[in-house]
Simulated assay, not measured.
Amino acid sequence: MTGGDGPKPDLRRSSDSKPLSWTERVEFGLYACLLPGLCYALLGTTDAVSIGPTAVMSLLTAEFAGGDPQLSVLLAFFTGVVVLTAGLVRLGFLVDFFSVPVVSGFVSAASITICSTQLKGLLGIKGSSGKTMIGTLRHVAGHIDETNLWDLLLGTTCILLLLGLRWLGQRAGSSGTSAGRRSPLATLQWLLSIARNALVVLLASLLVLALERHQLSPLSTTETVPVGFPAPQPPPFALLAVNGTREEAGLLQLTRQLGLGLLVVPLVSVIECMAIAKAFDVVIK
């Protein structure tokens, strides 16, 4: 996508570059994912969508940005510009042209992809597994002897707990059509069900904290995340390219580096929201 037969510039910083800014730190995504939910709570029109970084969008971003944090920021910015522009010019009717088989296929493929990417973490296997489902399965099969049984036990327990809390919600729903008509016990079950993801994360975090307080580290954990919020900055419209010499990469060069991602990522984000909304609509009906 860069055009021409010349050498393609490497848009990643070398080890002798200046210290990384917040746009080059991996953990900035943890802070950025909080803002969409807060904005959507004020401006959104439906609760049947997933706001924030999903597994499918994360995989696509890694594919087109090549794992570069700065390119990921730029791709996210242009994705927002494309989706916002489409909304302002009333292009929502184009979604109606996506047939049911297309949406169903996307949901099925997304489910399989998500399950395969989580398999390595469930087993506690280290190392990079590639960007495809086949690569992930090969990596898991080749390192199955490195499985961390404590990670597997915790992951399995969390899955069972999630399923159990969802069952509680379904049982509470059978006792009435709205929360006001339920008994206090059924209302409690319904609240536990809708908060099950947060509850499981909280309980698992408390477990890890308790183990570390006793100098025990049987579980795989993330690395230390620097404290404090970074100062807001504009997207990186120019990057330092390294090809033996230092030079500035212009905006046009960066967009060529992202290539079809400027169209594919916004399109998939819309399809993903539509698929989730339609799935919830079917459940509600």
Rank of each mutant, 00 (worst) to 15 (best):
E272W: 09
N197I: 07
K120Q: 14
W167G: 11
G3E: 01
V208A: 09
G259S: 13
F280P: 01
V264H: 09
A241Q: 12
I284Q: 09
P7I: 03
S178K: 06
G44R: 04
G169L: 12
E146G: 03
L207N: 04
A172P: 15
P234F: 02
G6L: 10
L123M: 13
V242W: 07
G29Y: 01
L137D: 05
W167L: 10
F98P: 00
E146R: 07
G92N: 04
I276V: 13
L192Y: 10
L267C: 15
S220H: 05
D145M: 06
K285G: 15
Q118Y: 10
A186E: 07
T113N: 13
V83E: 06
I51V: 14
T156F: 08
R196W: 06
G155Q: 10
L42G: 03
T157S: 15
A32T: 05
L34P: 00
L211G: 01
P230F: 03
F78P: 07
V107S: 14
S193Y: 04
A141N: 01
L43R: 11
V200M: 06
L267K: 09
G135K: 02
P232K: 06
T245V: 08
L59A: 08
T46V: 10
G130R: 11
I159M: 15
L260W: 15
S50W: 10
G121W: 00
R90N: 06
L165C: 14
F28L: 08
G173M: 14
L199S: 14
G121L: 01
S99F: 00
S183E: 05
G52H: 06
L262S: 13
E212H: 09
E272A: 15
L191V: 10
F229V: 11
A172T: 11
P69R: 12
V95C: 00
K131M: 11
L74M: 11
P232A: 05
